[in-house]
Design a protein around this nucleic acid. Structure first.
Length: 516
RNA sequence: GGCCCGUUCGUCUAGGGGUUAGGACACAUGGUUUUCAUCCAUGAAACAGGGGUUCGAUUCCCCUACGGGCUACCA
């Protein structure tokens, strides 16, 4: 067989925000396409108007954009196979003819049973201890459809405009097999499959039909999708066969699900709320006003998020863990995608972010920090922020940690760490601080080295250990009990500021002490 | 319940008929650091169970258990 152009698609339903699992599916599709020089399409599967959620489609588009997963074709990108929204394709009359053709060819039939009929049937079956009633190749003979009803009756109903659906006529006792790129051969007997509705009473195709038609019309070569589709894959194979498209049927690859960090089950929105981590790439404001947090808003870099997601169920087989999108594209293969579900680990997610943060230059970090600083109306220049980043970077996971950890670089000290105050602020500390203040005042050039030299000289002169002077000094200047080198902090802060803080701090702390 | 898929340290995983079963996160200990973080070193930690096949199975096959998915005129 000649090499077919790789064309894959990500086909979400706009029923809510895209969650991590969806992003991973999109990512793997994207990586696979790029790896093989193919196309990545975005198709919106909005055949169920009752589940349509306003804003969801925009959200999906924005989320993918933030992740750097840009479609070559599809909604928001254009292309020759449009429209790419299934609702619009339905309006264009794309699906109807195929549904009816299936009936004509004897592979499907009209069914007139109403939803109530079906519900009643299921309830009756349940009472008769048949808990799982299905509309299938046995039960269909006792239902109202073009298989059981006379031809006259069917025509009469059709002419009268009775609502109907089209169901696939599942054959009796046939083995349907297909090769999954990740799982190998999957074989299912048609006796275990039901007569799925492929065309709804409202004139919309169901997922199954629309999906097959669109994939065929859009020349999709590989279907990479979630495990939840594995059970219906045989149905899809049958649909390709009955439509006469089996020779160009795409290859299938079913991805395992992302599971909850602890406990069982797939990751859901609630797990994030409970575990204190996001499950969505971007913050989602639901129409009902509920807000779900996003990775972006939590300070994650998109590259780190993507990297982390990629490793949930895939690995390169080497020790390398940090991969740019380009490197992922280079390294990605379906063969190295795992078969089993992966429990999501929020700690590892943080670790990825930390790695990326550390690899960014101080200027880069400062640039990212400036908007946040502006929001807080703090008046500093970018060069100063970069210097702060240099000092705080090593102890930050998120960009905002730099601001929080290094608060004292931007604002006066308003509170003093109680523990340090209690343990390290002794009777003679104020005197020592006064003396240190004088020493610092005498420094001409307020550089890290000069401050350190002066400080050490002072210790030596009085035969003090560092522990006698250091903690009080830090407390006075930063309000904290720990942090980066004091000499660095002071040189960044500048002489005036440091002296001022010490003087004011001495007064404040003495007042606090007197109070206590 | 039925059907389908899966099962290596707590977690993500590598590996694969004969290995001291490797790495990463998290954890613990020690070192560096005035402190915290970083960094470095070290440690603890796994082949779900039972049957086969085989000289030999964690690896191949079967069964069981467990986990997951599906079982809509939802995707």
């Amino acid at each position: 067989m000649s090499e077919r152009r790789v064309r894959v698609r990500f086909a979400p339903s706009p029923t809510g925000p895209l969650h991590m699992g969806g992003v991973r599916t999109a990512l793997y599709n994207y990586l696979f396409a790029k790896k093989h020089g193919g196309d990545f399409l975005l198709r919106v599967e909005d055949t169920d108007q009752t589940r349509y959620v306003k804003g969801a489609e925009d959200y999906i588009l924005e989320a993918l954009k933030w992740c750097g997963i840009n479609p070559d074709e599809g909604v928001g990108a254009g292309g020759d196979c449009g429209p790419y929204r299934q609702s619009e394709r339905k309006e264009a009359g794309i699906y109807k003819e195929y549904a009816f053709k299936l009936v004509e060819d004897g592979f499907a039939y009209y069914a007139f049973d109403t939803s109530e009929d079906l519900t009643n049937m299921r309830e009756m079956a349940e009472k008769a201890k048949m808990p799982n009633w299905q509309y299938n190749n046995i039960t269909r003979t006792s239902m109202k459809n073009s298989v059981s009803l006379s031809e006259d009756e069917v025509t009469k109903r059709l002419d009268a405009g009775d609502p109907f659906v089209i169901r696939l006529k599942m054959p009796r006792n046939e083995e349907v097999r297909f090769h999954d790129e990740i799982r190998g051969w999957v074989i299912v007997n048609t006796n275990n499959m039901d007569d799925k509705v492929i065309y709804k009473a409202d004139g919309m195709p169901t997922y199954h039909l629309a999906n097959i038609i669109d994939d065929h019309l859009m020349n999709i070569s590989h279907v990479i999708r979630g495990e939840e589709w594995l059970p219906s894959a045989p149905l899809h194979v049958l649909l390709y066969r009955y439509l006469g498209w089996e020779d160009t049927m795409p290859k299938f690859a079913h991805l395992s699900l992302i599971l909850k960090p602890n406990g069982n089950g797939k990751l859901s929105k609630r797990d994030g709320d409970k575990g204190g981590f996001p499950v969505f790439p971007l913050e989602w404001n639901a129409p009902d006003g509920a807000v779900s947090s996003g990775y972006k808003e939590n300070g994650y870099f998109p590259e780190a998020f993507i990297n982390m997601i990629a490793f949930l169920g895939w690995n390169p087989g080497t020790a390398q863990e940090i991969f740019s999108l380009e490197e992922l594209t280079e390294a990605f293969t379906l063969e190295r995608v795992g078969k089993s579900g992966a429990k999501f680990d929020p700690d590892k997610a943080k670790w990825f972010n930390q790695q990326y943060l550390r690899n960014k230059s101080n200027t880069e970090l400062a640039q990212l920090l400036m908007p946040i600083i502006a929001e807080e109306k703090l008046d500093v220049c970018i060069e100063y922020v970069a210097e702060v980043c240099e000092l705080i970077k090593e102890r930050a996971t998120f960009i905002t940690d730099i601001l929080e950890e290094g608060r004292y670089f931007f604002e006066d000290v308003s509170a003093y760490d109680e523990k340090t105050l209690k343990k390290k602020w002794k009777e003679d500390t104020p005197t020592i601080m006064q003396e240190l203040l004088v020493e610092l005042k005498s420094i001409e050039e307020f550089t890290t080295e000069n401050i350190e030299t002066k400080f050490q000289a002072y210790l030596e002169k009085n035969e003090y250990g560092f522990g006698k002077v250091g903690p009080g000094f830090r407390l006075l200047v930063t309000g904290k009990g720990m942090g980066p080198s004091m000499f660095h902090i002071c040189s960044v802060l500048g002489k005036e500021y440091v002296l001022d803080r010490m003087e004011k701090g001495l007064v404040k702390i003495e007042a606090l002490k007197a109070e206590a």
